[in-house]
């Protein structure tokens, strides 16, 4: 039993540590979440979820976390791709300015411009 216990606990530990996106210095591992190095030390994306809800268009919810003790201002943009990977041009994919308070963690949502949008690309960069 003593030998089996660590083996039984290992998957639990791994599952417990697993989050949708791993991070290295605030940069998410998912290639679709691109946090520029000039802001990666200040904020990170801790969670990303995509669902359709009542509609036939996807809604993406990104949870941002400010790692600093002062406010962090940033730009972000969510681009949407169709099945063939082509970007769907839309005002809904415009750059948006936002800010997080000290150590604030907040979800930010984006809605796909059409049912043809099946994938996304998030870009985050520091406000200059």
């Amino acid at each position: 039993m003593k030998r089996l216990l660590p083996l039984l606990l290992l998957p639990c530990l791994l599952l417990g540590c697993a989050s949708p996106f791993g991070h290295t210095d605030g940069v998410p591992d998912d290639a679709r979440l691109r946090v520029a190095p000039n802001v990666a030390g200040s904020l990170r994306i801790v969670d990303a979820r995509m669902a359709k809800g009542n509609s036939d268009v996807y809604r993406l919810q990104l949870t941002f976390e400010n790692l600093r003790s002062d406010a962090t201002r940033f730009f972000y943009r969510v681009s949407w791709m169709d099945e063939s990977g082509m970007e769907i041009p839309s005002t809904l994919s415009s750059w948006r300015a936002d800010a997080l308070g000290p150590y604030e963690r907040r979800p930010i949502s984006a809605v796909a411009p059409s049912p043809a949008a099946v994938d996304f690309l998030v870009q985050v960069q520091a406000e200059k």
Binding site: N54, T91, L92, S94, S114
Partner: peptide
């Protein structure tokens, strides 16, 4: 930029509501 932000919020909400389906 304000107009684009408003368009994005309003249109996104309308599409997500399912009313147009």
């Amino acid at each position: 930029q304000d107009v684009r932000a408003a368009v994005s919020e309003l249109t996104g909400s309308l599409l997500q509501s399912g009313l147009l389906n």
